[in-house]
């Protein structure tokens, strides 16, 4: 036996960049994540050629899922042309031969930072969310090993307590994005820093969501048709951002999550946060044969 028989012929990189052993590990962990919705599965989280904190977790999952016939959409803050989203999408095309798209309805895999598209995802689509901090208990317990025991015991009392304190102090629950949510009635997870607007899109969805934190080395999932309930008190309903009556100044579309653009005169303009949904809406209004997918929100309200 010779040393070179122990390995395969040299090539600069593997298909999908990650070597087969890294992919196998991510596959094994992903299956566990799907089997225990909302539970954070630790994984090795290999180094990838982008910096930690820039989507390495999402990237590793997408690279593992990638096939040459994959159609990938990558968004950051809802926008396809955000510089980091562009960079990740180019990398996926380069190392995986994937087709790039901006159209939510065409994508097989959607990797996103901080948003879920407005068009409803189908049961054949996978949403990969980049996660900076996978631990919803971090505000009450920075020590990850203790937080893990608390999840084990379903000990969420302290988390309820800080929500209650916010309510008492401010009259409202002040949590902006990353709203802690109970998955399948057992594990509290962070839905990643998506706005409250997007959290209900995970509840009893048709699509599969995989959430991956590369730096913190945790992967978790929400399978289709799984309950995701924001932590709320019975007498204080969950409230999404007040964007239902905002109008996009570019497309004229109303009733979706908006970016606020401060103006010189002290007022604000609003534009659709889901940038390609905005583009399609404009094209459709101009008479182009564009198909808009069904949206989660209708007239600013979730069904």
């Amino acid at each position: 036996m010779k040393i070179n028989e122990l390995t395969k012929p040299w090539s600069a990189f593997n298909y999908g960049f990650l070597d087969e052993s890294a992919k196998r590990e991510i596959r094994r962990r992903t299956l566990k994540a799907v089997a225990i919705p909302g539970y954070q599965v630790p994984y090795a989280s290999r180094d990838v050629p982008i910096a930690r904190g820039w989507g390495t977790g999402g990237l590793q999952v997408t690279l593992t899922l990638l096939k040459p016939d994959s159609v990938v959409k990558v968004i950051d803050q809802g926008a396809d042309d955000s510089v980091n989203a562009s960079s990740i999408r180019k990398f996926l095309a380069k190392v995986g031969g994937a087709t790039e798209t901006s159209d939510t309805t065409e994508a097989t895999i959607i990797q996103s930072r901080h948003r879920i598209p407005e068009e409803k995802l189908r049961e054949d689509q996978i949403l990969v969310l980049q996660v900076p901090n996978p631990e919803p208990l971090r505000p009450v317990q920075p020590d990850m090993s203790i937080a893990r025991e608390m999840h084990g015991d379903a000990d969420y009392g302290q988390l309820w307590l800080i929500l209650y304190e916010q309510l008492v102090r401010s009259g409202r629950i002040m949590q902006g994005s990353s709203y802690p949510s109970m998955v399948n009635g057992r594990h509290v997870m962070t839905p990643s820093p998506i706005p409250r607007w997007d959290v209900p899109k995970l509840n009893q969805a048709d699509h599969l969501t995989i959430l991956s934190a590369g730096r913190e080395k945790r992967i978790f999932a929400v399978p289709p048709h799984t309950s995701v309930e924001p932590l709320v008190f019975d007498d204080v309903p969950y409230r999404v951002e007040d964007h239902q009556d905002k109008t996009c100044y570019r497309s004229g579309v109303e009733g979706f999550f908006m970016n606020e653009l401060p103006q010189d005169d002290g007022s604000s303009l609003y534009e659709l946060s889901d940038s390609h949904f905005g583009i399609k809406s404009i094209r459709k209004a101009e008479g182009e044969p564009v198909t808009l997918g069904e949206t989660w929100y209708k007239n600013g309200r979730m069904e």
Binding site: A51, R52, G53, W54, T56, D76, Q77, G78, S82, N84, R113, H114, R115, P132, M174, G176, S177, S178, P193, I194, P195, R196, W197, R215, E241, D242, H243, F257, M258, N259, E260, S273
Partner: peptide, 19 residues
Amino acid sequence: GFCIHFKLPHYVTFQSSLD
């Protein structure tokens, strides 16, 4: 990596807190 990632846009989360 995490330190420099704060240069990335965070306007969605900011919008959510602002609300």
